[in-house]
Simulated scan of single mutants.
Amino acid sequence: MTSDPDDDALSWDGDSEAERPTLPKGWHAVGRGSDGVDSAAVADQVAEAPPSEDAAAAASAPEVDEELEGLSTGMLLALGAIGGVYLLYTVGWLIGGLRMQAGALFLIPSVMYTATLVIAVAAPALWFAASWTLTRGARSWVRLLALIAGVVLLVPWPFVMSGGMAA
């Protein structure tokens, strides 16, 4: 018996004509080898097969009509740009705060200054996280507006006023 190597790759040892699947009623086999498919036999096998556990679990679970929507490309780009600005703000607050430390320790205790520096450095990340979670169910423009408000409010003034140079 000569067989095509392509057909051998798609079969198991011991496959016989009797073991080949057949299609359910209304289905039509297409392509080479479709003349040996018995649609009535496959329909009988499908009807006799007991439901699997996965099918039973899926049937008992409530259907969810709403699917989660992904973010649009424009919104992803805006989030990336604003996230980058927040990251730069974090670095700006750290550099600006450390440069002001010598003059500020003359007026306030070091523990107080360190605590406020930590809060100032963490503020951009906290604003981003808060606006992301609090606007979860809102429209995209509301989320974007909350993030832009943080960009305006959280400017690292010690860094900006010194021009990034040593004071």
Rank of each mutant, 00 (worst) to 15 (best):
A115T: 09
A115F: 14
T116A: 11
T116Q: 07
T116I: 04
T116G: 13
L117E: 10
L117P: 08
V118F: 09
V118Y: 03
V118M: 12
V118C: 06
I119N: 02
I119Q: 13
I119Y: 04
I119V: 09
I119H: 11
A120E: 12
A120S: 10
A120I: 01
A120Q: 13
V121P: 06
V121T: 13
V121F: 05
V121I: 14
V121R: 03
V121L: 01
V121H: 06
A122P: 02
A122M: 01
A123Q: 10
A123W: 06
P124Q: 00
P124T: 07
P124A: 06
A125Q: 06
A125Y: 08
A125I: 11
A125F: 11
L126V: 15
W127E: 00
F128W: 15
F128D: 08
F128P: 05
F128G: 09
A129C: 13
A129R: 02
A130P: 06
A130T: 07
S131F: 00
S131T: 04
S131A: 15
W132R: 01
W132M: 06
W132L: 12
W132H: 06
T133P: 06
T133N: 02
T133Q: 11
T133S: 12
L134A: 01
L134R: 15
L134C: 05
L134T: 15
T135I: 08
R136K: 12
R136M: 09
R136N: 14
G137T: 14
G137I: 05
G137K: 02
G137S: 12
A138W: 04
A138R: 04
A138S: 13
A138Q: 08
R139E: 09
S140R: 12
S140A: 11
S140E: 12
S140H: 11
S140V: 01
W141R: 14
V142Y: 05
R143V: 10
L144W: 11
A146K: 01
A146T: 00
A146N: 00
A146M: 14
L147S: 04
L147T: 08
L147N: 09
L147I: 07
I148G: 10
I148S: 15
I148Q: 05
A149H: 09
A149N: 09
G150Q: 05
V151F: 06
V151G: 02
V152Y: 12
V152D: 06
V152T: 02
V152P: 08
L153R: 08
L153W: 13
L153F: 05
L153M: 10
L153G: 14
L153E: 03
L153A: 15
